[in-house]
Amino acid sequence: SRHTFEINGERWTVEGVSEELKEILRAAERASNDEAERLLRLALKLI
């Protein structure tokens, strides 16, 4: 499935992501810059 999210003013669209990964991306959208970066690094390990 496709998911579009915005982090630090940048929009991203990813396809074929699991519900778990979507949850991480949604958390990154709400997080501070440092926390968002940490969550994105974690998410990339899952891809």
Rank of each mutant, 00 (worst) to 15 (best):
E37R: 09
A31V: 06
E29V: 06
A36H: 03
V17Q: 04
S32T: 13
E23K: 10
D34C: 11
K22P: 00
D34F: 08
R26C: 10
K22V: 15
H3Y: 12
V17F: 07
A28Y: 07
E6S: 03
I47H: 04
R30E: 10
E35V: 09
N8S: 04
T4G: 04
L21E: 02
K22N: 09
K45W: 13
T13M: 07
A27W: 08
G9N: 04
L21R: 00
T13G: 02
A28S: 03
F5S: 02
G16N: 15
R38G: 05
A43W: 04
A36F: 05
V17R: 01
T13I: 14
T4F: 11
D34M: 09
W12L: 08
N8V: 03
V14N: 01
N8M: 11
L44N: 03
A28T: 02
I7W: 03
S18L: 04
R30S: 10
A31L: 07
N33F: 15
E29P: 01
L39I: 05
A27T: 08
A31H: 04
L42C: 10
N33G: 15
E35G: 03
E6K: 02
E15P: 04
A36R: 12
R26M: 12
L42A: 05
I24H: 02
V14C: 14
G16Q: 07
N33P: 15
S18K: 03
K45E: 15
L25M: 07
E35Y: 05
E20Q: 11
V14I: 12
L21P: 01
E19W: 06
E6Y: 15
T13R: 03
S18H: 05
V14H: 01
L40Q: 01
E10F: 08
G16E: 09
R11N: 10
L25S: 00
T13S: 07
T4Q: 10
R2V: 14
E15V: 13
R30V: 10
L46F: 08
F5L: 06
E29H: 05
E37P: 01
G9H: 02
N33D: 11
G9M: 03
S1F: 08
L21S: 03
E15G: 05
G16C: 11
E37M: 11
R26Y: 08
E15F: 11
E10N: 07
L44E: 05
G9C: 11
V14R: 00
H3P: 06
K22S: 09
A31N: 03
E15Q: 10
A36Y: 05
L46G: 06
E6W: 13
R26Q: 11
S1M: 13
E23Q: 12
T13D: 07
V14P: 01
R2D: 12
L44R: 07
E19Y: 05
T4I: 14
I47G: 03
E37N: 10
A28M: 07
K22Y: 15
L46H: 07
S18V: 04
N8H: 05
A36E: 02
L40M: 06
W12G: 00
R30W: 06
F5A: 02
H3W: 14
D34G: 15
K45G: 14
S32G: 12
R11M: 15
E10I: 15
S18D: 08
A27G: 05
L42V: 05
R2N: 12
E10M: 13
G9L: 03
L46S: 05
K22C: 15
L25T: 00
I47K: 02
V17H: 05
L25Y: 01
E23G: 09
L44V: 11
R41E: 13
E20N: 08
R41N: 14
E6G: 00
G9E: 03
I24T: 02
D34K: 10
T4P: 03
E23I: 10
W12M: 05
S18P: 08
D34H: 11
N33S: 14
A28L: 10
E19M: 06
I7F: 04
R38V: 11
L46Y: 10
L46C: 11
I7G: 01
K45S: 15
A36D: 01
I7S: 01
T13H: 09
S1N: 14
D34P: 12
I24E: 00
A36S: 06
T4H: 14
R2L: 14
A28G: 02
W12N: 00
T13K: 03
V17N: 05
E6D: 07
S18M: 04
E23D: 12
L39N: 00
K22H: 14
R11Q: 15
A43I: 10
G9S: 02
L44M: 09
I47N: 03
I24M: 10
A43P: 00
E15K: 05
E10D: 06
A28K: 00
L46P: 01
E23H: 11
R30Q: 12
G16L: 11
I24C: 04
T13F: 10
A36L: 10
R30D: 08
L42G: 04
H3C: 14
K22F: 15
E23A: 13
E20G: 08
E35M: 06
I24V: 07
A28C: 03
R2E: 12
E29D: 04
E37V: 10
